[in-house]
Design a protein around this nucleic acid. Structure first.
Lengths: 242, 242
DNA sequence: CACATCTTAATGGTAAGACCATTACTCCCC
DNA sequence: GGGGAGTAATGGTCTTACCATTAAGATGTG
């Protein structure tokens, strides 16, 4: 009976209206949506409902908005999913909806894929970027937090050298979602300096294997790198028993 | 200079307020947020701004709202990321922000992981569910769309047997994001019947290997299954040249 | 005719206020 | 103790008004 079907919320009608046109191909990246006032009239809801719908799809990385008349103003379809992915995963990791052992397993699988692809596809610019990051991380003056940022940057650089958009975005999103937990895990270590030295050596090995197109070696090294780092950070394992 | 820093939008202030408390651990799954009116006052914005912020985090699968007084009403922290993930990926696949060859590679990596985990962790109930789906799919009377739904259901069942929340949710989200493109690809095939028979045989092999804990066999079979299906659906490759 | 300036309009951003439907809680009566 | 009525809390929705930004159009000047 229709009693079981709750009437759709006004903002949901707008979301559906927009999604339908995305799925049908009518809206593509760069397409301009009707103005909020026009869309409200067209769908038969109020302008705040349109705004709530826009916010929903903005959170999905699908829409972006700007004030002003002409081509720069209004709401357009966006082609930038990675920030939305990153935010989503970071929040759910923080809420422990994804336990860190699970995240680590997935990281291994995805970074194996990214590293495999990067070892055959990385450009000279990609490789130079990795080497720059290695050099920065070899500076003994870095704080742990700074080192972690560059460490993340190296993983991001490898992912971006993969030439696979989804693999890159997912790899980046998952690594970023673990930034704070990893930093906390490093902070709890008895000996940061020796850990840092091990991480550095591993980074060098990975980049060397990628540079030499030694695909299987690179893949094995990235996996070993992630697993051994995780194993060291015993504070991250607290989730596992939960 | 501060000229370069745009003032934060009112709804962004609320999103930040909520995110900060999630990241700090103050809010956990099940936590109740202050009422919209209270939150508006506390953050110093209007209630519509709060609603827009709630919509943002709802789209990230982080919040859910209900009308009414008492424990059932209000806005609470949610622990259900998979729908948000699925929606996000589906929209971006539809917008061609993730080309289908990229998606297929990532599917292979993730379904290898899910299948590996499932072959050691699947319960009797998980296996029975897979066998039920095999049996349903062996019915010659199914339409292509119905078969595709159950095919998706099998991939979902394997992913859920993995016992790794993130792997499951990502595998499911990615498979679901490809549901319509796969259906279109199947529709364009010259001989659906022979394809269906091949898919069925492959499904049986995968489930048998999982059941027998033949991990490496199961992993190889799921990869072959995905790759060969993708290779058959030439209409999906149109993206590759884009 | 080209350029500069001003005016106007379009657009998203924001807030206040009013009202509605749902839900639970409290109080009163039997 | 149970049932019913009243009240309050909550999200849901809409209307109205205003603001800041941006571009387009109109007007004036050289």
């Amino acid at each position: 009976m229709s009693d079981d079907v709750a009437p759709k919320k006004a903002w949901q009608l707008v979301v559906d209206w927009i999604e339908q046109r995305i799925l049908s191909g009518e809206f593509a990246v760069g397409s301009h949506l009707p103005a909020e006032r026009d869309l409200a009239q067209r769908v038969g809801v109020s302008r705040p409902a349109v705004r709530e719908a826009v916010r929903t799809l903005q959170a999905n990385g699908v829409l972006q908005s700007a004030v002003g008349a002409g081509a720069t103003g209004g709401t357009t379809i966006s082609g930038v999913p990675h920030q939305a992915l990153t935010r989503l995963l970071r929040l759910h990791v923080a809420l422990a909806n994804f336990p860190t052992p699970d995240v680590t397993e997935v990281r291994v699988a995805l970074e194996r894929l990214s590293t495999r692809l990067a070892s055959t596809r990385a450009t000279d610019a990609d490789l130079a970027r990795m080497r720059d990051l290695l050099e920065v991380m070899d500076d003994d003056g870095l704080t742990m937090a700074e080192f972690n940022n560059h460490d993340t940057g190296l993983h991001v650089a490898i992912a971006e050298a993969a030439g696979n958009r989804l693999a890159s975005d997912l790899t980046i999103a998952i690594r970023e979602s673990m930034r704070l937990p990893i930093l906390a895990g490093l902070d709890a270590l008895p000996d940061w300096i020796s850990t840092r030295d091990i991480l550095r050596a591993q980074h060098h090995g990975i980049v060397a294997a990628i540079t030499a197109h030694e695909t299987e070696a690179a893949v094995a090294l990235i996996e070993e790198h992630i697993r051994s780092a995780y194993a060291r950070m015993t504070s991250l394992h607290a989730d596992a028993g939960g």
